[in-house]
Structures are given as structure tokens and as C-alpha cells.
């Protein structure tokens, strides 16, 4: 079953074309990794899917319903069903971990406080972070904050989770804990679109890898094929640079 279908997605920032007729379909339980150099349009693609930024042409569908449909326009359903985690965590600094996690369930989706807190504790325990429930973001390391941000996105029980370079701001020794959570989510069958620079991780966790350049998907395929036998010369060049930088 196709969860998300993107057709002919085109997006300009001013006169700059950032997404050039992108087509992408993501099936249920599928993990798709988007790779490519900075400025290739990966993050913008994610931000179009949950309407953080408007796009100029094309359609995006969630379970066969356009995200511009009445149903999504006049409710919070889209945000409930598609979660996103950002590179800079973007936790609310004036709220503690528990409050960060329960804010949207309580205020947006009307879940009673007790129920949403139980769910938050459950998720925190699941990911080994129960001891931070009362901590404030500034008391946590970057890796811990990012794990909280993932839990916050999961608190709405989304059908799809989008991760935007979630390890890019972290020190190398903190990346492991975050990647572990993402692997666990994959095992639980979460549908994910992951923008990442961690090629080893992408190879490991992705069902499908898409290489973007200039706002287009130049090549896509299972990681075994795309990393080992890239067909497009641009993909080869990109991977070559990554290998030279010691990142693969």
C-alpha cells in the first residue's frame, strides 16, 4: 500500500528552482533515505510533504488523499499523521521533556493530560530516557535532546515519520544513540523518509535510497545496488567524494 505519493513536485524559492518535477512513492513500512549534497532539495522535499512550505506545482497524497484536500486543510490531521524531526531538535526551551512531548497531544488533539503523560512515559521508558522526564532541554546533551525530539514526534502516533538530518548537529559519539532509536522504529514497522549524510546508516536501514541533485531524483534503488553499482555518473561522483571524505 502506498502511504505517500509525490507527483511532479516543483518548488521555487524566488527564481531558484529547488525541486524540479520530483516523483516519489513511499509504501507502508518502507524506509526511504534521501541523500545528496547540501542544496539538492532534500530538506525542502520533506517540508513540502507536511506543508511547512508551500509548493508551486504537483501533488502530494497521503493514503490517496491530496494534502491540499478539504479534509487536511481544516484540521490538524495531517500534522497528527506525519511527524517530522529537525536537525536542530527545536525543543521548546521553556518546557521540560514531559511538557514538550505532551504539548501537541493535549493542546492540539485534545488528549487528556493523564493519558498523554502516560503515553509519554511509556515512550520515554521504551527509549531508555525515563530519567529525563523532568529535565529541561538545556540540561541535556545534543544526542539526548534529539532523542526527545523523536519521542515528541512519536507522541502523536504518526503514520509517517520524516527525519531531517537528525544527526548532522551531533558529536560523533552521540550519533549512535539516535541511530539506534531509528533502527528500533524500523523494526516496529514505522514508515520513514530520512534525509541523511550518514551513508553507512542509510545503507544499513534503508529499503530504498534516492540520490538528489539540483532538485531532481537522479537515481534510486535498494542500497545494495545504489551504493555498490551506481549507474548515474553524478551518483558515482557524489559517492566517490563521500568515500574520500571517509564517510562510507
Amino acid at each position: 500500500m502506498t502511504r505517500i505519493r509525490i507527483d511532479n513536485l516543483t518548488k521555487y524559492y524566488g527564481d531558484t528552482l529547488v525541486l524540479d518535477a520530483v516523483d516519489l512513492a513511499v509504501g507502508e513500512h518502507e524506509v526511504v533515505c534521501l541523500i545528496g549534497a547540501s542544496g539538492s532539495g532534500k530538506s525542502t522535499l520533506l517540508r513540502c510533504v507536511n506543508k511547512l512550505v508551500p509548493f508551486d506545482h504537483g501533488t502530494i497524497e497521503l493514503d490517496g488523499v491530496s494534502i491540499d484536500d478539504e479534509r487536511f486543510r481544516n484540521s490538524n490531521e495531517l500534522y497528527k499523521r506525519i511527524g517530522i524531526v529537525f536537525q536542530a531538535y527545536n525543543l521548546f526551551p521553556h518546557l521540560n521533556v514531559l511538557q514538550n512531548i505532551t504539548l501537541a497531544p493535549r493542546k492540539v488533539h485534545g488528549t487528556p493530560r493523564q493519558e498523554s503523560e502516560e503515553r509519554a512515559h511509556e515512550l520515554l521508558t521504551l527509549f531508555g530516557m525515563e530519567q529525563f522526564a523532568k529535565s529541561y532541554p538545556e540540561q541535556l546533551s545534543g544526542g539526548q535532546q534529539q532523542r526527545v525530539a523523536i519521542v515528541r514526534a512519536l507522541a502523536n502516533n504518526p503514520d509517517v515519520l520524516m527525519l531531517d538530518e537528525v544527526t548532522a548537529a551531533l558529536d560523533p559519539e552521540l550519533i549512535g544513540g539516535v541511530l539506534k532509536i531509528i533502527r528500533e522504529l524500523k523494526e516496529q514497522g514505522m514508515t520513514m523518509i530520512i534525509v541523511t549524510h550518514e551513508m553507512g546508516f542509510a545503507r544499513d536501514v534503508a529499503d530504498r535510497v534516492c540520490f538528489l541533485e539540483g532538485g531532481r531524483i537522479l537515481e534510486e534503488g535498494p542500497p545494495s545496488q545504489l551504493f555498490a553499482h551506481p549507474e548515474n555518473p553524478r551518483t558515482r561522483q557524489f559517492l566517490q567524494r563521500i568515500i574520500e571524505a571517509g564517510r562510507l
Binding site: 500534522y79 529537525f86 525543543l91 521548546f92 501537541a104 492540539v108 515528541r152 514526534a153
Partner: peptide
């Protein structure tokens, strides 16, 4: 980023 996070959570 705070506004983006709030919007993405549905606020």
C-alpha cells in the same frame, strides 16, 4: 525553528 516545530506539531 521554534515556529516550524510548533507548526509541524499541529499548533
Amino acid at each position: 525553528g521554534q515556529r516550524a516545530a510548533a507548526k509541524a506539531l499541529g499548533l
